[in-house]
Design a protein around this nucleic acid. Structure first.
Lengths: 145, 145
DNA sequence: CTACAACTTAAAGTGAACTTTAAGTCAACT
DNA sequence: AGTTGACTTAAAGTTCACTTTAAGTTGTAG
């Protein structure tokens, strides 16, 4: 008794929905060479579970700051086989380094944003109490660099 | 003995250098209403230490994800006085909420990136030893969502 | 068998945030 | 006084990552 359940396939619309992109974006990615779609006899694209995993992986890389162009490089090298692993590794490491740098800066930006929110909240609550000991506090939180 | 040291002022190029933007970008920001420049008798812009602080603050907000349009709203409300503080606070809080959401996602993306780097490094070091116990490891780190 | 939704293509359009260009004015140095 | 570099403007151009359009084909439900 063959329990060979055939792997499900998806047309572009369904596939797009699953990976959280639009159908045109999927076509765009295919044109950019980031993914390749199988075709039915009538020329319609269809995708597999593997494709879902692949796109999700690409989106993770993209989410760390890799541009479409970076992804293209990666995909091209990947297609060229194991000899390009050092290039791919360098690219990923550089991506990580850039990410970490951005991360640090963004932490600082968040700090300032939080300070400002606190500042406004203190000011608002002060408005209600009628008191205003905020002139000093104001200076204190005056964003020095 | 008057120690009244006059506050230094900067022309657009110097100012741009200090805040880390280009002169055209400063002009662009001024056109967008994000900052206002004083002018000399001859129509040249000049900027003060206050302007430096202001732009740096804007860049911190921008760095947390606020668009030029968001910044415009903020600046407009700010110019309208204390009555708009609730709007400004809402905008900053929403910015923070969006930021935190993005932050969470990006943490996950980084995790995947790190996994992949580890995976490539394991593969590379494996190539040198000649051993290959990586088939299993490979599957383990096969990015499930 | 006829709707109608979902697919196909190539090409043009969009929005965000600048950047570049062109033509001109002005300040500072030798 | 002349050259050079920094400024002035408005407008057009650039880049990125899609999105929209237009015209046509195909699969399915009634």
């Amino acid at each position: 008794m063959p329990t060979t359940t055939k792997e499900p396939t998806y047309e572009i619309g369904q596939f797009a929905g699953i990976v959280g992109l639009s159908a045109p974006t999927i076509r765009y990615y295919e044109n950019q060479g980031l993914l390749k779609a199988r075709r039915t006899a009538n020329g319609r694209r269809y995708f597999t579970e593997q494709d879902i995993k692949w796109v999700k992986f690409l989106l993770h890389l993209k989410g760390t700051g890799m541009s479409i162009n970076d992804l293209k490089k990666y995909v091209t090298w990947r297609a060229e086989g194991d000899s390009t692993i050092p290039y791919r590794l360098d690219l990923l490491k550089q991506t990580k380094a850039d990410f970490m740098e951005e991360y640090r800066q963004v932490q600082h930006h968040l700090q300032i944003l939080n300070d400002k929110i606190d500042w406004y909240e203190a000011k608002e609550s002060g408005k209600d109490t009628g008191k205003e000991p905020f002139a000093d506090y104001l200076k204190q939180v005056g964003h020095e660099e």
